[in-house]
Design a protein around this nucleic acid. Structure first.
Length: 480
RNA sequence: GGCGCUAUCGUCUAGGGGUUAGGACGUGAGAUUCUCAAUCUUAAAACACGGGUUCGAUUCCCGUUAGCGCUACCA
């Protein structure tokens, strides 16, 4: 039974890199019928906040990455870390360090200036245990440091990168427990991962270099190693690590941009991971669109790339349009309703009509936000008219007069169908000696408030005879 | 600086000792049209560089270069 965790630090929102790591963890857990655990690493009290925690949870829920256990908060498990540090102290793997932050900073600066690697100099490493214990008992502030073996190498087998080896001499005696008793990252992750019986550690490749320290900790604690799997990072278009200056990096920002969560998930899954030949179809082409079930079915650590990937907004937009087009209107409706709520828009048509409207529009929409902004005329009689569209298609004042005349003809048209409305319009255009396109484009602006819309006659049928007549004749009186 | 990881079209990637190096997004051209998409056809586009190993390297090895990561009493 596999157990994997996603362990974000609430010092920021859930960014796309973290979201993808969470997705991989979740995919792995589901694929192996294992357990997906959520753990909040909030031991940096200064920078962590509850708002960030709720934002992270919201982002995970939006992506549909439900967790089986947790969320656990490290801030509530301080006793475990203290006890773990004590064990390490007792077996000689750790020692008290009385150096102050200021002293350390000074020495670091000096070492850097001298061109020497700024590692902890081991000053407190060989203090007699009894002395150290006495000083601590006397109330002197002390951190607890891990004792790195002074020779040899530490190696581990990464499920993605293969065997990775580090010389112990490159590692420093890092702090396990700060002088205020709060653990440092390395201690808390390892203590928790052991305590929570994690079998696989799937995390960003930025932790690859941290891993030997943690391997040493597992050893010192007599625990067996989990499988480490480091996943390559996501970069911005300039190939530097993705950050705020690349624009939206919070997953919730993508929600606000009208991205369908499954589309985002599909896109993210294929960034740094590939199903390989499994995606090949009979015609030789390779699929890119995969349902959640398919993703779960195909996912494996073997398909993971070794190099970083650039986040490609255009491709995300493509996934989004594909999902919007493929989803049944009933499935799109709740997502669209959220947009309407957010925009303060209240549709005035029946649910049945709304579903028909979605069906009419979904083939040409790129973002869920379109439904709240540019498509208002389809769901309410209260809609804005785009001035650029007026300028483009209704510049000639005579067009409005013709459309008004056309409205009169439409008033008595039976049946009012796509075929009949088109026939009538074309005959009317011929009669008046104008090109049908002029009337079609003008009518489109009046009926939808936009210069862009689905086939005009389909729109007419959707809106219904009464609305068409009303909107067509209102244009002239409104003096657009 | 030290250490670690990585390197296939602009981007995401498949592939792998002998291939016309495949697909997707995007881009160009054409078709269609009622606007905009979509759709269809089509085109351009890649194995970073240098050494090995080999009959033969894009593929294996080494180096160079470049990018990224780590190098805190952050995570």
């Amino acid at each position: 039974m596999t157990r994997v965790r996603f362990a974000p630090s609430p010092t920021g929102y859930l960014h796309v890199g973290g979201a993808r790591t969470a997705l991989f963890c979740w995919l792995f857990a589901r694929h192996t019928h294992g357990t997906f655990i959520l753990r909040i690493e909030d031991t940096d009290f200064e920078r962590s906040s509850e708002d960030m925690v709720s934002g992270i949870l919201e982002g995970l829920r939006w992506l549909g990455l439900e967790w089986d256990e947790g969320p656990f908060y490290q801030s509530q498990r301080l006793d475990l870390y203290r006890a773990t540090a004590d064990r390490l102290l007792a077996n000689g793997s750790a020692y008290y360090c009385f150096c102050t932050r200021e002293e350390l900073e000074q020495r670091r600066a000096a070492a850097t200036a001298a061109g020497v690697p700024p590692r902890y100099d081991g000053r407190c490493r060989n203090l007699p245990t009894a002395d150290a214990a006495r000083r601590v008992a006397a109330g002197e502030a002390a951190a607890i440091r891990f004792r790195i073996p002074d020779s040899g190498t530490t190696a581990f087998e990464d499920a993605v990168f293969g065997r990775v080896e580090f010389a112990n001499a490159e590692l420093e005696d890092f702090v396990l427990l700060r002088s205020d008793g709060v653990p440092t990252y390395h201690l808390s992750v390892v203590a928790d991962d052991i305590d929570m019986r994690m079998t696989h550690i799937i995390r960003g490749a930025d932790h690859l270099s941290n891993t030997p320290k943690q391997v040493l900790l597992y050893n010192a604690l007599g625990a067996s190693l989990p499988v480490f799997a480091h996943v390559p990072l996501i970069l911005g278009p300039d190939k530097t690590r993705l950050s705020k200056r690349h624009g939206a990096t919070s997953v919730l920002a993508y929600k606000d941009m009208g991205i369908v969560p499954e589309a985002f998930r599909n896109f993210l899954a294929l960034l740094g991971w590939s199903p390989g030949e499994a995606a090949r179809q009979a015609d030789g082409k390779e699929r890119e669109i995969f349902s959640t079930a398919e993703l779960v079915e195909m996912f494996s650590l073997e398909g993971m790339a070794h190099s970083n990937a650039v986040f490609n907004n255009e491709k995300l937009a493509w996934f989004n349009t594909e999902y919007i087009r493929a989803y049944a209107p009933e499935r799109l409706l709740p997502l669209i309703e959220q947009e309407w709520q957010r925009a303060g828009f209240v549709p005035s048509r029946s649910r049945e009509d709304i579903l028909a409207g979605i069906a009419l529009l979904q083939q040409r929409t790129r973002s869920l936000t379109d439904f709240a902004m540019t498509f208002r005329a389809y769901f309410s009689d209260d809609y804005p008219t785009d001035e650029a569209a007026v300028a483009k298609f209704l510049a000639d004042p005579s067009t409005l007069g013709l459309l008004r005349e056309l409205a009169v003809r439409y008033r008595t048209l039976t049946p009012f169908s796509e075929l009949s409305t088109e026939e009538l319009l074309r005959a009317f255009a011929a009669e008046k000696g104008v090109k049908p396109g002029v009337l079609i484009n003008g009518a489109r602006v009046l009926l939808t408030g936009q210069g862009v819309a689905p086939s005009l006659f389909a729109v007419m049928v959707y809106l219904g005879q009464q609305r068409v007549v009303q909107r067509l004749s209102a244009g002239a009186t409104a003096g657009i």
